[in-house]
Simulated scan of single mutants.
Amino acid sequence: MQQLLDLLNTAIEETRRVRSDDKQLILLGTSLLHPADAFMSLWKELAPKMPKFQIRLVQLQEDLNSRNREYAMLGRSSDLIVGTFDSTTLKQSFSAIQLGAYHFGIAVRSDNPLAQLDEITYSDLTHRKVLMVSTGISEKNDLVRSEMLAAEPSIQPIDTSGRYDINTFNETVEENIAMISLTPWKRIHPNLVTVPLKTSVTVPYGLLSTKFPGKKTADFLHEFTKLVPTETQSHS
């Protein structure tokens, strides 16, 4: 009897292994700046309805030769990433399914007087240096920059060399300056406090792929978009 049970258990495990091997593996890139939490919460609900696919998280690497850094690795080290996008981003060979929107904030060192505010207005930044990505990388960031300088011309934008990396946060702390930040970056650096910025501008975020992702990823996205609630879904 025990031998029969052992054989049965072996057969069950083998079946599970085969089923797992038959799944289409989708590589989802993740990093400090591109957390996958929003998608993974959704995937917990959708996974039983998409049994052909399995998600594997991979650590995103940067392409330091590109102003888009981790975005430039799409289709190379990962099939998909969760990231921000706007028309500027999408013109650079990316496609997106919107999952939500991030809000802007101002990150400052915890001992900076701005850290004590409940909300920061542009007038609070008068004569201050503000770290942000340079123009042409993000349409939404450019919009905030224009808004900010129109309201307070004395503000001094300090440009990064591309999209943010961990050194951007370190620079904010070491120089004790302000930095344009977004919702998911609130806890990246323990010495930074992020205060909401008073602006109506938000940044859409979602599931990003290359415009020609290959059959496996294209099949996944096709199934995914059929199941995602219509109020969440937005094709670009």
Rank of each mutant, 00 (worst) to 15 (best):
I177E: 07
R67S: 10
Q24K: 15
E70H: 11
E139K: 11
V201Q: 10
L131F: 07
K198N: 14
N141G: 08
G162Y: 05
T199E: 12
I166L: 15
S31D: 13
D159V: 04
T88I: 10
E223Y: 08
N176L: 07
Y71N: 07
V193Y: 09
S200P: 07
L32E: 14
E14Y: 04
L57S: 05
M50Y: 11
S78T: 05
Q116V: 06
L32W: 13
F212N: 13
D118Q: 13
F85N: 06
R19C: 05
Q156Y: 04
G29Y: 01
K216F: 00
S123K: 12
I177H: 07
R16F: 09
L227F: 13
L143W: 04
S93H: 12
G162R: 01
A11Q: 12
F224N: 02
T135M: 04
A107H: 04
T217K: 02
A151D: 11
A36M: 09
S77N: 08
Q233C: 01
S234C: 00
L143S: 10
A150H: 15
R163H: 13
D37K: 11
L117A: 03
I188A: 07
S236K: 02
F53Q: 05
L149Q: 13
Y102D: 15
P51R: 08
T230C: 00
T15E: 06
S181G: 09
F220A: 01
T210S: 13
I106A: 02
P196Y: 00
L197A: 02
R67W: 02
P229G: 00
P204D: 11
T183W: 03
E14I: 01
Y205C: 09
E70I: 06
E152Y: 06
T121F: 10
S31I: 13
L8W: 08
T88F: 09
A101M: 12
S134Y: 02
I120L: 02
L33Q: 08
E70A: 11
S123P: 01
P196S: 08
K226S: 13
I180F: 12
I12S: 02
A151T: 10
A218E: 15
F39Q: 04
K198I: 07
W185A: 07
S110E: 14
M132R: 14
V130H: 06
S41P: 05
S123A: 10
V18D: 03
R69N: 12
V193T: 15
L208R: 01
E174A: 15
K52I: 02
L149A: 05
T217P: 03
N112M: 03
N141F: 05
G83M: 06
Y164P: 07
A107V: 04
A47Y: 07
S134K: 15
T126Q: 14
T172H: 09
